[in-house]
Design a protein around this nucleic acid. Structure first.
Lengths: 335, 335
DNA sequence: TTGTAAGCGTTATCAG
DNA sequence: CTGATAACGCTTACAA
């Protein structure tokens, strides 16, 4: 039951292991006919090169890493799926590392993972993509990495982004177009890079419409519970808003829940807008008008960039993907 | 910038690399004082042994794998988190492999992953845990594996389960206790192991109460859309049920949505129950009465079993974890 | 175009 | 209790 090795393939094809290695790595300098013979031997033995052996011997491990520190199941799932799909295309393996519930040892843990697994590069997802300590540590190691949705694209190498600010601006305009003038906002988690951008877009749109003053804003923390609390505060105020824009869908769902409890009809008496288009956006009642953030596609692109990077191919510094405003039942004309 | 190796540690501690290796692997035959000296050197150099080198040289890779083929973000996230936490405790790394959207190449892909990564064992999550072809292939390779929530625990080695049937039974009894006598059911995905068990529990409880005949049952596919469709069918029938029990939360959310659309008040006119206690259960309005499936804990336990297995320690064949009936706002007395 | 030999960072074997 | 040396399966450098 010993594993099939490169020697077995070489023997079967009647060549040296070096030639097999050349075929494996798509290196030039092998006659087409020889190459075919080797390929056949590989297939018939269903030989699969050992990743550990390759990474030990060569400069590459054919493994790239993805790190996250994010409690949102939907987002993490989409991001993993996108990155994995891209890796599959490139015949690379993806090593996924969670840093959830790690306290202050995040950087330490990521570095340990890098050293132990020999990953060739890293996809860094939000909010880690804006973690200064981590970014510096990676730069110091000279490990190629691509950041997903960081708040600052001016330094730190290639990244894949979406224009959160413009999206929030669009959504706010959507509400203004529906006739709303008092539009509450539930701000996102202060440590999340996109929170600031979304709030800026919201404020800018209100300012442009001349109603930027004294709009009610409450702090949330990106989970349903904090959205619910913020919603209750906003809806219990004397001058109640006719629309509430929450910085993500989970919080928007919380706002909808608060409205239900207070007997406020959504969308007739209150419009609610979310952000992310996560699974729950379509599940809550009424379904949420939201911004579809192409998490899968962004991760797919990020993995692609990283692969280019580790293969010494040129890669653009900033890749921006388009968002979409998804209009559903939770927003309507102002009462 | 060369990596810190076992030689560096050996030099710093004034011992041979073999002794360092012994300390690393907690092998006996090292004087306490020597061991301490080596430990200090490891810490001060922040040395981290190379996983590839270890797996190439030794019998173990210190890596275990987790495979899934499951579209539910919440479930996958919980399972990953649980397994990863257990691995962290044991100083092992977890290699996660998705088989989503792979068509018929699932077994092939898993075997390729095993060969390439040299994982010491595998946590097999549902529905792969009931995939006969995969299980046979793993047995043939003699790779240790632990199955999560398989439908058949009688063969295939250790597994971690929850009593789906008893849970569905309990939930149905809960509805009966509330006075419901016409209780619709939305069956789960036919290829999911638990679907059959949940349906059996539902039916058995009805039979025990003497109302098992002619209850309306619709087929769903574990997603919200199919739950919505099934809900519409159930609620449009001439003899409308006063309660609907869906085989998972996503479908229950779809039923709630259908009820909203038809102007049927939940829970006053219709009670709805789900299963899984996924994130959305608490988010939909009204929040779902459901069964909490301890996905995190089950995965944690499964990883623990697997670790015992690969370290040649005895492990129980079947580990059963307890579920909880979580009562929320979606169920109430029959009208 | 192909092959030979050395070595990657560990663990296993066996000797001291 | 400790250490020298040979693997492990591959890539790299260099020859032929």
């Amino acid at each position: 039951m010993a594993r099939t090795t490169i020697d077995d393939v070489a023997a079967a094809a009647g060549v040296s292991i070096k030639t097999v290695s050349r075929v494996l790595n798509d290196e030039p300098g092998v006659r087409t006919e020889t190459r075919g013979r080797v390929r056949e031997a590989i297939a018939s033995l269903s030989y699969r090169p050992s990743l550990p052996a390759r990474s030990l011997a060569g400069k590459r491990s054919n493994l790239i890493g993805l790190v996250y520190d994010n409690p949102s199941a939907n987002y993490v799932f989409d991001v993993q799926s996108g990155a994995m799909a891209r890796c599959r295309d490139a015949h690379l393996r993806l090593f996924i590392q969670s840093c959830n519930d790690l306290g202050g040892e995040t950087v330490e843990e990521v570095l340990a993972m890098i050293d132990q697994t020999h990953v060739d590069g890293l996809v860094v997802t939000p909010p880690l993509s804006s973690d200064a300590a981590l970014i510096s540590a990676l730069e110091e190691r000279r490990l190629p990495f691509v950041r997903l949705a960081p708040d600052d694209t001016s330094r730190g190498g290639p990244c894949v982004i979406m224009d959160d600010e413009a999206a929030a601006h669009d959504m706010t305009e959507h509400l203004l177009d529906l006739g709303h003038r008092r539009i509450g906002f539930v701000a996102g988690h202060p440590e999340h890079p996109s929170s600031r951008l979304r709030r800026q877009g919201y404020q800018a749109a209100l300012d442009a419409a001349g109603v930027g003053e004294n709009q009610p804003i409450e702090q949330g923390f990106n989970d349903t519970a904090s959205g619910y609390e913020a919603g209750r505060r906003l809806l219990s105020a004397s001058k109640r808003p006719t629309a509430i824009f929450a910085s993500n869908d989970d919080m928007a769902a919380g706002v909808v829940q608060a409205a239900h409890e207070l007997g406020i009809d959504v969308p007739r008496q209150l419009s609610v807008a979310g952000f992310d288009d996560s699974q729950i956006a379509a599940i809550v009642w009424p379904a949420l008008t939201t911004i579809r953030q192409p998490a899968y596609e962004m991760a797919f692109a990020a993995a692609g960039l990283l692969i280019d990077l580790v293969r010494d191919r040129p890669a653009p510094a900033v890749t921006e993907l388009a968002y979409t405003l998804v209009q559903r039942g939770s927003t309507a004309e102002a009462p």
